[in-house]
Amino acid sequence: MSMLGIMARADRIFGEKHFQILYETGIRMKTFYENFKKYQFLLTELVKKDIKLKYRNSVLGFLWTLLEPLLTMIVLTIVFGTILQKKTPHFSVYILTGRLLYSYFSTGTKQALKSIRRNGGMIRKVYVPKYMYPLAASLSSYVTFLLSLIVLVIVAAVQGIRPTWYLVGAVVPLATVFLMVTALGFLLATLDVFFRDLEYIWNVTTMLIMYMSAIFYEADSLLDSKYGFLIKYNPLYSVITNFRNTVVYGKPLESFYVWYPLVVSLVVLVVGLAFFYKKQDSFVLYL
């Protein structure tokens, strides 16, 4: 069938109006892509800036990224391992995996939340696609997070944990957590423009999420209790669990913990992006 024939048929199936919408969406996606290509270098520059400035003025520099989770792990292991007599196998690695994922979640969302307002001076003066700012904030925290995984490799080796083939599955929770943080980032960055106290509200919320994520205690016994659902339906707990399964315990991914956080993140992404795009033209009036 000729191209014209296909189009005529598509016309009959979709109706002229639908075809028009499809065509316009195509055009819009093409302009979006071209615009993204144009500003791709800006995205790398923004990510680089965040990372460079983070380490510029500290003596230990990059070493801090490794030392900080290591020291927290030691403290938490002593407190919860010794005093509470925890007998979880590889308790220190158990804590470290949870801590690392949680701290990316918390710093990533906090950075993204502030991103639009922090760059307000720029937004008011030069045209730049605004989604670059929350995206760059999430990306730069993610890069730091991936680098901090070095400490996990070292501690796991010291603890005698041998990698299994299931380790490949760790890609799934790692990708999901990035999606989750980016999605929340768009939503929070938009709200933060209009509500200045959101930063404090979110600080408290992330603390609540921390206690719901089973970072320094075992959740198995709690899951069936009255408030167990708080942990079970916390998407971050899903991600942490699957990460531990693949990295620490050499177990396969659990399917519920794969699709549940993914679905939640995708829903938040759609809502967050829609909200961001609806409001982005009025950012400049509130900055």
Partner: peptide, 9 residues
């Protein structure tokens, strides 16, 4: 490089 990137270069 940062400012240049913002101007779209």
């Amino acid at each position: 490089f940062l400012y240049g990137a913002m101007l779209g270069y």
